[in-house]
């Protein structure tokens, strides 16, 4: 098994851990953190392919990860602000109770 496959396995599993957390946990903060983990898994993929890909000198993977981290930071800030705002209105962050848009 090559290191690239190991890296891809790591990212796949990390992605699934995040996915399960996002699907299973009721706390909005933990759901957000699951999403963050999924983003991190994608980043790991980028680095792995940059490291073992055909043209590492261009540094495309590294740059992509940098932008991705910036976007993740923005997403975390807005997401947590949303959580706080929702908490102020609903006095809860349990996702099961926040269903006012239900059809």
């Amino acid at each position: 098994m090559s290191p690239l496959q190991l890296c891809l396995l790591l990212s796949s599993l990390l992605f699934c851990v995040g996915l399960v957390a996002a699907m299973a946990r009721s706390n909005a903060i933990l759901v957000l953190l699951g999403v963050e983990l999924m983003l991190n898994a994608a980043n790991i993929n980028f680095i792995a392919f940059w490291r073992y890909g055909p043209n590492p000198e261009a540094g495309t993977g590294v740059l992509f990860v940098l932008f991705s981290i910036a976007v993740a930071a923005a997403e975390a800030a807005v997401g947590l602000a949303l959580v706080i705002a929702v908490y102020r209105h609903q006095k809860t962050i349990r996702l099961a109770s926040i269903n006012r848009l239900k059809g």
Partner: peptide
């Protein structure tokens, strides 16, 4: 009938996507 799927729970949507 369709609106029954619109449960208001984001996690169930995520489950459907997965």
């Amino acid at each position: 009938a369709y609106s029954r799927a619109q449960s208001g729970e984001p996690q169930s949507y995520l489950r459907f996507i997965a």
